[in-house]
Design a protein around this nucleic acid. Structure first.
Lengths: 197, 197
DNA sequence: TCCTAGACGCGACAGTTGTCGCAATAGGAG
DNA sequence: CTCCTATTGCGACAACTGTCGCGTCTAGGA
């Protein structure tokens, strides 16, 4: 993450140029072939400068993804807990195995880059926090008992998706998203995620 | 995976030397610093040969782990579904965040090496198949209804562990293992994993 | 307007990854 | 034992990753 001790004209210009180059490289060569050298050359910024400010590819990726993320995202209301979780799981599947697997790239980078790891953590934490409203609505509807731990329920719904796609090498699978969502919703209805944090 | 078109003396010798070197490097420098060059130099086999036969570090890792895996592993019987799942989750935690995170290394390598990805898939598939007996015992004890999908239950129990440790960067956490196991066991008891494969 | 510290350009350096062509060698079939 | 060829050794090559020192520029405050 670049420091902001001197946010002035040139510094801002180089940052914009580099991030634009990252974007272009991602579009052109895909996320797996993103390289510091290519970004430096395309942006016209010197290699050493990129290394100094972003440290590695993970830093570039993290900065680009954080800069480009939509801050107004909210989970939709689809009328039932199951439907809400299905919608969330479909988003996860798309982020992991869709045509532009940004989450997959960030996860990959997180193994070698502390900046990417931190960005990934922040992103997921933020998402789970925003999704708490889904659980609140479910409790209001009577689909889950009061005291249901939102975070635990949400992880139970999404974690198997990560497991199957990242670890077991399964491709985009809509049935998987539906099944994991319904299982988690049923477990929540049975009061599995109440108490004992 | 090396071909066996010529399993004769020299080929077998180089393979043994390389795998021994992998073992030694793993013990000496840990799994994160395993490098093709070091393995080649230690084994006395030329770099190019190692690259030709194993393709990359992931290939080495996969071959070494497949060669060295214990074929007699079985899940223990701890008297209850919850206890059985807790024991399994503790093993997962150790493999991921323990002093010798072999699973973590294999997962890391699987992102860049098809051989490692295949080995990881095989390993997990094999593990889940062996663990089906845990679910069978639970059904016999009346802890879960007949028709409970073993694979789904097992993934529900372990996937959150992978999620928290690999993605959220959490360290070895015994409470996490216990919580995920009890949640999954309670869900199974409520009949969540029955039917609709 | 001037001064300074932070940011950048430049080139060199060392290390790792992975590939290639060619020559030498050693299994295994006959 | 002889021949054929799969396998290996060898060295060169290209690309990427990070780092370093040094000189230059420029933004932002006095």
């Amino acid at each position: 993450m670049p420091t902001t001790r001197r946010p002035g004209g040139r510094t801002a210009r180089t940052r914009a140029a580099v991030l634009a180059a990252v974007e272009a490289e991602l579009l052109e060569h895909g996320v797996d072939r993103l390289t510091v050298d290519a970004v430096a050359e395309r942006s016209g910024v010197h290699r050493a400068t990129v290394y100094r400010r972003w440290r590695d590819v993970g830093g570039l990726l993290a900065d680009a993804l954080v800069a480009g993320r939509e801050d107004d995202w909210r989970p939709g209301d689809h009328g039932s807990l199951t439907a809400d979780l299905v919608a969330l799981n479909r988003e996860v599947v798309e982020h992991l195995a869709g045509p532009r697997p940004v989450s997959r790239a960030l996860i990959l980078a997180s193994y070698r880059s502390s900046a990417a790891a931190a960005a990934l953590r922040d992103f997921l934490e933020d998402r789970y926090r925003r999704c708490e409203v889904v659980v609140e609505r479910a409790i209001e509807r009577g689909e889950a008992p009061a005291g249901t731990d939102a975070r635990r329920l949400l992880v139970a719904a999404t974690a198997p998706i990560y497991h199957e796609i990242l670890l077991m090498g399964r491709g985009a699978d809509d049935a998987l998203a539906v099944r994991c969502a319904t299982d988690a919703a049923r477990a929540a209805g049975a009061g599995v995620f109440v108490g004992r944090g």
